[in-house]
Amino acid sequence: MSEDLPIRVAQRLREEDEALDPRLERLAMGALSPEALAELEADAARDPELARQVALFRPLSSELQDRLTEQMSAPVAKVIRPARWTRWGLPIVTLAAAALLLMTLRGPSALPSYAGRVEGGDVVLRGEPTPAAQGRRVMRGDSLLTLELSPATQVDGAVVARAYVRTPAGARAAPGVPEVDPSGAVRLRGVARELLGVASGTVSVALVVARPGALPEPDAAFAPSEGPRLEVQLLLR
């Protein structure tokens, strides 16, 4: 074997990376805009190999993620590896029915505390990085942006979420629609300018979680409140 073997292995890995359509990874992450998804599907209709890859990279179903959560939450000392795990219908249905009954009897309680997470762009902190210091993220408008709010404990009852933007022209609801997980966690993810409906410039973004019917008006979304709220300032370029 030649001396340059590690370099050739690395080169092969680079070729592999480059051979994969970059849209596929974003498809799996649920980060393609409807327009980009339509374009990918149109391309796949003309290219059987791409069609096979699109089928492989389509986002995992929420049912599968629920099954994973169920299995990994099981209080067992050791995780057993079934040969094929994809057919667990009954336990899930039973659990869902039990949860529904519990909610009916007790009604929804107050929301727990939430932890926030932002992904995308570079953080520019001004002043001391104290908890009060607002980091401003600088990012390209076509970059991926993720905002998440995760509850400290399982949320009892339904929650809804909405994203808001505030520019010099005022505050309004953002076009991006957050996903709400059965656990009460909320995620807003996608191409920044499409999520926010802002092409460039400085914009404040607020992701708010509330009980149904209790979401704030756009102006109130940026005011201090009791409910879970994640606020971030972005400079889109």
């Binding site: 505390s113 939430y114 932890a115 926030g116 997470r117 932002v118 953080v123 902190l125 990085p129 908890p131 009060a132 210091a133 607002q134 980091g135 993220r137 709010l149 607020a206 201090p224 409140s225 009791e226 409910g227 879970p228 709220r229 994640l230 606020e231 971030v232």
Partner: peptide
């Protein structure tokens, strides 16, 4: 609850 400030 106060607003959650994004994490470093």
């Amino acid at each position: 609850m106060a607003a959650v400030v994004e994490a470093s």
